[in-house]
Amino acid sequence: EINVTSHGEEQAKHWIELAKRMNLDVEVEIHGDKIIITIK
């Protein structure tokens, strides 16, 4: 399980695309200006 804290939408999209390509599950939480991505 990987937790990524992203401070930008572009960076977040990059991680989500990467996870989808690798067929991994992704959870995205938004806390103000921080985007927390959990890849399982």
Results as ranks from 00 to 15, higher is better:
3 N>R: 13
3 N>L: 11
21 R>L: 13
25 D>M: 14
6 S>Y: 09
6 S>L: 14
3 N>I: 14
8 G>A: 10
15 W>F: 07
13 K>R: 10
9 E>H: 09
33 D>R: 08
4 V>M: 06
23 N>K: 12
1 E>F: 11
16 I>G: 03
8 G>W: 15
6 S>I: 14
21 R>G: 02
18 L>T: 02
16 I>S: 04
29 E>F: 13
5 T>L: 08
36 I>N: 02
13 K>F: 12
3 N>T: 11
19 A>W: 15
14 H>M: 13
39 I>V: 04
35 I>C: 03
14 H>P: 04
27 E>I: 12
34 K>V: 10
17 E>A: 14
33 D>Y: 13
17 E>Q: 13
10 E>T: 07
14 H>S: 09
25 D>R: 15
37 I>Y: 01
20 K>F: 15
24 L>H: 01
23 N>P: 02
8 G>V: 13
3 N>M: 13
34 K>T: 09
30 I>N: 01
8 G>N: 10
9 E>M: 13
33 D>A: 08
5 T>W: 10
19 A>D: 04
28 V>R: 00
34 K>D: 02
15 W>K: 03
40 K>F: 11
11 Q>A: 10
18 L>W: 15
8 G>I: 14
7 H>Q: 06
28 V>E: 00
9 E>I: 13
25 D>T: 14
18 L>G: 02
29 E>G: 02
4 V>E: 05
29 E>V: 10
37 I>D: 00
31 H>N: 07
28 V>G: 00
37 I>G: 00
2 I>M: 07
25 D>I: 15
39 I>N: 00
17 E>M: 15
36 I>R: 03
30 I>E: 01
20 K>H: 07
6 S>C: 15
21 R>V: 10
39 I>E: 00
20 K>G: 05
23 N>R: 14
15 W>I: 08
19 A>Q: 03
30 I>L: 03
19 A>S: 04
5 T>F: 11
39 I>A: 01
29 E>Y: 13
28 V>D: 00
21 R>I: 10
33 D>C: 14
12 A>G: 05
30 I>C: 14
24 L>T: 01
14 H>Q: 10
12 A>W: 15
21 R>Y: 13
22 M>G: 02
31 H>A: 04
25 D>E: 12
39 I>K: 01
5 T>D: 06
17 E>C: 15
12 A>T: 07
7 H>G: 05
16 I>P: 07
27 E>T: 13
21 R>Q: 04
10 E>R: 06
3 N>G: 06
18 L>F: 13
10 E>F: 12
27 E>P: 00
7 H>S: 08
38 T>C: 12
7 H>T: 08
31 H>I: 12
5 T>S: 06
22 M>T: 02
38 T>D: 01
35 I>L: 04
23 N>G: 14
20 K>E: 05
14 H>A: 09
13 K>S: 05
24 L>N: 01
19 A>K: 08
38 T>E: 01
25 D>S: 14
5 T>R: 03
1 E>H: 11
29 E>L: 10
32 G>M: 09
7 H>I: 12
4 V>P: 05
13 K>T: 04
35 I>K: 00
6 S>A: 14
33 D>P: 03
18 L>A: 02
18 L>R: 08
20 K>D: 05
5 T>V: 09
15 W>H: 04
5 T>K: 05
13 K>Q: 05
30 I>F: 09
6 S>M: 11
37 I>M: 03
14 H>T: 11
14 H>L: 12
1 E>Q: 10
4 V>D: 04
23 N>Y: 13
28 V>L: 04
2 I>V: 10
39 I>G: 00
1 E>M: 11
2 I>Q: 08
35 I>R: 01
3 N>D: 05
28 V>F: 05
1 E>T: 12
16 I>K: 06
38 T>H: 06
7 H>E: 10
17 E>H: 14
33 D>G: 05
23 N>I: 15
6 S>K: 08
18 L>I: 06
5 T>A: 07
37 I>K: 00
27 E>V: 11
22 M>H: 03
30 I>T: 02
40 K>T: 06
4 V>N: 04
11 Q>D: 09
1 E>D: 07
14 H>E: 04
10 E>W: 14
16 I>M: 07
1 E>R: 05
27 E>D: 04
23 N>V: 15
29 E>T: 11
33 D>F: 15
5 T>H: 07
10 E>A: 09
16 I>L: 08
17 E>L: 15
10 E>P: 05
40 K>S: 03
37 I>A: 01
35 I>T: 01
27 E>F: 11
27 E>R: 13
35 I>N: 00
24 L>M: 03
25 D>A: 12
21 R>A: 08
8 G>E: 08
35 I>S: 01
26 V>D: 00
12 A>Q: 03
18 L>C: 14
33 D>K: 06
28 V>H: 00
2 I>R: 03
13 K>G: 04
22 M>K: 02
18 L>Y: 14
36 I>M: 03
15 W>P: 05
8 G>S: 11
7 H>L: 10
12 A>I: 14
39 I>W: 10
6 S>F: 13
10 E>H: 06
31 H>S: 05
40 K>Q: 03
26 V>I: 12
31 H>M: 09
26 V>C: 04
27 E>S: 12
1 E>W: 14
20 K>A: 09
31 H>Y: 11
33 D>V: 09
37 I>S: 00
32 G>T: 05
27 E>W: 11
38 T>S: 03
3 N>V: 14
9 E>R: 08
15 W>A: 02
16 I>W: 14
29 E>K: 10
9 E>K: 09
33 D>W: 15
29 E>A: 08
2 I>P: 05
26 V>L: 03
19 A>T: 04
27 E>G: 04
9 E>L: 14
30 I>V: 07
2 I>L: 08
3 N>P: 07
24 L>I: 08
35 I>V: 03
26 V>M: 04
23 N>H: 06
32 G>S: 10
34 K>P: 00
7 H>W: 14
23 N>S: 11
2 I>G: 07
36 I>E: 01
34 K>H: 10
5 T>G: 06
16 I>T: 06
28 V>Y: 02
40 K>R: 11
29 E>S: 09
39 I>M: 04
26 V>H: 01
15 W>Q: 06
14 H>W: 15
16 I>Y: 09
1 E>Y: 12
22 M>S: 02
36 I>G: 01
38 T>P: 00
33 D>M: 13
14 H>K: 12
10 E>Y: 12
36 I>P: 00
12 A>S: 04
7 H>Y: 13
40 K>W: 13
9 E>S: 08
7 H>V: 11
39 I>P: 00
18 L>H: 02
7 H>N: 09
13 K>E: 04
22 M>Q: 03
35 I>G: 00
21 R>D: 05
30 I>G: 01
2 I>Y: 06
16 I>R: 12
22 M>E: 02
13 K>P: 03
28 V>S: 01
32 G>N: 05
13 K>M: 08
4 V>F: 10
20 K>W: 15
9 E>G: 05
38 T>G: 01
19 A>N: 08
28 V>W: 04
17 E>I: 15
6 S>R: 06
9 E>T: 09
8 G>M: 13
11 Q>P: 04
5 T>E: 07
28 V>Q: 00
29 E>W: 14
32 G>P: 09
26 V>T: 01
1 E>K: 08
16 I>V: 06
20 K>N: 07
18 L>P: 03
22 M>Y: 14
2 I>S: 08
34 K>F: 13
22 M>I: 04
15 W>T: 02
16 I>E: 04
26 V>A: 02
20 K>I: 14
19 A>G: 02
35 I>E: 00
11 Q>W: 15
4 V>W: 10
7 H>K: 09
25 D>K: 14
3 N>Q: 12
4 V>I: 09
34 K>N: 05
3 N>H: 12
36 I>D: 01
40 K>A: 03
39 I>T: 01
24 L>Q: 01
9 E>Y: 14
16 I>Q: 04
29 E>P: 00
22 M>N: 02
30 I>M: 03
20 K>S: 07
6 S>P: 06
32 G>R: 07
4 V>K: 07
19 A>I: 11
39 I>D: 00
35 I>D: 00
15 W>M: 03
24 L>G: 01
20 K>P: 04
2 I>F: 10
30 I>K: 02
31 H>C: 13
32 G>A: 08
1 E>C: 15
20 K>V: 14
12 A>C: 15
31 H>E: 06
20 K>Q: 07
15 W>L: 04
26 V>N: 00
